[in-house]
């Protein structure tokens, strides 16, 4: 299993303070993924994360959120895995890492920093 650790700055300055912030996390490249994080109320969230409401912009500014996603290579054409984040439908450049072998797994630990 390969480990990948990084951070993702999320700029919320262009959004109104009372707007809800919705988070989507998905594995790309035709692979199977599973995500886990603990939201700001202390509740665990598992699996496919699609438009999960994290809270309002004002409440999130200055906070950070740890996410762990496991991506397993199931694509016969490439061993690269990728992890995509969308915040309010704004898609960020993907994090990518090659699996060590065919059908290997990459564990992504990404910390989102809201500003």
């Amino acid at each position: 299993m390969r480990d990948y650790t990084d951070s993702l700055p999320v700029d919320l300055s262009a959004l109104p303070a009372d707007q809800p912030v919705l988070l989507t996390i998905r594995g790309g490249d035709g692979d199977v993924s599973y995500s886990v994080f603990k939201d700001f109320s202390g509740r665990y969230t598992y699996g496919n994360i699609v438009n999960y409401p994290l809270g309002h912009v004002a409440a999130l500014r200055g906070k950070s959120l740890l996410t762990v996603t496991m991506v397993t290579d199931t694509n016969p054409f490439t061993n690269r895995t990728s992890l995509w984040f969308l915040v309010n439908n704004q898609r960020f450049a993907p994090f990518t890492a090659d699996a060590e072998d065919d059908n290997g797994t990459v564990s992504y630990s990404i910390t989102l920093s809201f500003a």
Binding site: R26, G27, G28, V32, R91
Partner: peptide, 8 residues
């Protein structure tokens, strides 16, 4: 990198 799920 492609934003494509295993189902896609």
């Amino acid at each position: 990198p492609r934003d494509i799920s295993v189902q896609q």
